[in-house]
């Protein structure tokens, strides 16, 4: 289980987190929602070890962490196969490509892939890394609805198979309700709402209601 305890993070003198705590259970997908500037991406980058923090502790960090970034971050001069081989052996890569229906694109460079295709490769890379924890930073942002649904299905099928934990940052309550087991709303460096997602529709309504009430206040 990943435990973030009393986290402190400042950008210069500006506090992002002053006493922030959060847990992610084993095999749990936790959606983190919040307004822009709430520190969602900062949280992921701290957990990924890309950003230092100023206090508190993070316990239960696995050795390997997969990260689906906002952009695909594929190496442009590597083919799909070479990009995936950075995190896994060739044999596993081809098996996974076959399962994902991407086998024929193994030799393609990222510039030749469609937006959806390269997103799928980025998602596949995170799962192929065999990490017990996957971080996702708005992985379905700026995609049209049909593609978003296809990719969410693609993600869900991989997640069901692997059963890893995931920390999932999003602005979209529907995405959170669809993919997460639990959702939290953060703001002002604190967890403002923490709720399990048992019923998709109900969770979506609750999250939406929270944001609406916040706006009215």
């Amino acid at each position: 289980m990943l435990e973030i305890r009393h986290l402190k993070k400042y950008y210069g003198s500006l506090p992002v987190y002053e006493d922030f705590s959060l847990t992610v259970g084993e095999g749990e997908t936790l959606a983190v929602l919040g307004n822009s500037g709430a520190g969602k991406t900062t949280l992921l980058n701290i957990v990924a070890g890309l950003l230092p923090f100023d206090g508190g502790e993070i316990a239960g960090l696995p050795e390997r962490i997969g990260y689906i970034f906002q952009s695909d971050r594929l190496v442009p001069h590597f083919t799909v196969e070479q990009n995936l081989c950075l995190v896994a052996e060739k044999e596993r890569v081809f098996k996974a490509l076959g399962k994902a229906g991407l086998e024929e694109f193994a030799g393609y460079y990222p510039a030749r892939l469609s937006a959806g295709m390269s997103r799928r490769v980025a998602i596949l890379r995170a799962f192929l890394y065999d990490a017990p924890l996957i971080l996702m930073d708005e992985p379905f942002r700026n995609l049209d609805l049909a593609l978003k649904v296809r990719l969410m299905d693609f993600y869900a099928s991989l997640a069901r198979e692997r059963k890893n934990s995931a920390l999932f940052v999003t602005h979209d309550v529907a995405e959170a309700a669809c993919l997460a087991d639990r959702a939290v709303i953060i703001g002002g460096g604190k967890v403002l709402l923490d709720m399990p997602v048992t019923d998709r529709k109900e969770a979506e309504e609750k999250l939406e209601a929270y944001f609406l009430s916040e706006r009215q206040e």
Binding site: A48, G49, L50, G66, Y67, R73, F78, R125
Partner: peptide, 21 residues
């Protein structure tokens, strides 16, 4: 910076990072 961060997260060996990426 994005590519460099990706390499750090996925622990791409330093030799591969320098010579191949």
């Amino acid at each position: 910076r994005e590519t460099a961060e990706m390499c750090r997260v996925y622990r791409v060996p330093k030799k591969t990072r320098f010579f191949k990426i």
